[in-house]
Write a protein that binds this DNA or RNA. Structure first.
Lengths: 210, 210
DNA sequence: TAGATTGTTAATCGATTAACAATC
DNA sequence: TAGATTGTTAATCGATTAACAATC
């Protein structure tokens, strides 16, 4: 599907396009030009056209882009229509926050299960999702494969759990632990959400002026 | 302190340097060369030296860098020694996850208070932090100023709460809501943690190969 | 001292911006 | 049709990498 090697800068902008197009749809906007979209997102019109041209021709001269169509195209590019399944490992505070408040389905994912080691919560439900025993991870994923594992476990077991997920055929790991995962396998995608890195960048930026 | 305009790419790498140097300290490593550090981080030696040269001269020819000293310098650059205070707005799942599990103090921050609107939790403590009534935000911050506000409130009040924080003198906002904040004020730093953007980037990357 | 490694300048590479012919 | 706006090619800008004199 991909025409060429797409740079990571472009990939990181795609979800923002999707989000902004969503907003436009909400407000009933039917069409938008690259320059108008750019203005609202703080990008140049050129950059938007250049970005989109990595994937196809979605606009029309003299008209611009149909918002709904473009949003659909970007959803497709992002892989939102592939019925990706996800499982969460670790139903502590953060795991629960994701289970209850994060809208997996709005992002094209089905959260099929969550796992934890604490007997007190195994078997309970959170936000409609059953918490299973981590010991059952392999059994479960053998029956119900998932493409993404969400790591919200304590850092010290992050590496082990990551390898277990990969052994079960997971293609990507959404890593919320503060550990840098180093997998033996190739071609597994790791997406880190390092809170500390984010806060420290903020710290730098507010400490800047003096 | 800053010698020049530092690019955002460099700023984003600083926390990673800090983290890796921490790991090296843990394992008792005393010195390291740019090439060894680069190898372990997946960067070139050139890039590391180039990055560090934005801030000063921290190495020694023929020797490399003293790990402890370099870590200290980067902590200083990141503003980790400035006794930044933070307050959390919204003690739902995500807010609680941050209060209980995120180590603000390891990143140079003091989490001084949390706020919520739910009468059922106002006045209680979570992980040693008192949950206060959001109505008291202005009173509290007038007495105990904070440099960063953490937004873990529902998206629909994110904008309002952000403006209230800014009016109270906050310099930066750590935004965990899925809203794009647009402040009236200039020179306020917004650091977004958009879970959806992160998952969608992962979705793209695992959907890539076919 | 000789070997190692820095900080920095120059070269290369890639990403962003500008320009414009094509065309709705 | 005339005006608007695309997709794409060329120009510019910035970031990464390479090279090397300085020196510990």
């Amino acid at each position: 599907m991909k025409k060429q090697k797409v740079s990571s800068a472009v990939i990181r902008r795609l979800p923002r396009y999707f989000r902004h197009l969503n907003d436009l749809l909400q407000t009933g906007t039917v069409r938008i030009s690259s320059s108008a979209l750019g203005k609202s997102m703080g990008l140049t019109a050129s950059q938007i056209r250049q970005d989109l041209s990595c994937f196809g021709e979605f606009g029309q001269q003299g008209y611009g882009y149909n918002v709904e169509k473009l949003q659909g195209e970007i959803a497709e590019i992002l892989g939102m229509n592939r019925n990706h399944n996800a499982v969460i490992l670790g139903a502590g505070n953060l795991g629960r926050a994701l289970i209850e408040n994060f809208h997996f389905e709005k992002n094209g994912f089905v959260l099929s299960a969550a796992f934890d080691v604490a007997p007190s919560i195994v078997g309970t439900q959170i936000g409609g999702v059953v918490i299973r025993d981590t010991a059952q991870l392999e059994n479960y994923l053998a029956e119900y494969p998932a493409s993404v594992g969400v790591l919200t476990v304590p850092g010290k077991v992050a590496g082990i759990m990551a390898e277990r997920l990969v052994a079960c055929g997971v293609r990507g790991i959404w890593n919320f632990t503060n550990m840098e995962l180093e997998l033996k396998e190739d071609n597994i995608v790791i997406e880190n959400v390092h809170f500390a890195d984010s806060l420290l960048a903020l710290s730098y930026m507010i400490s800047d002026t003096e």
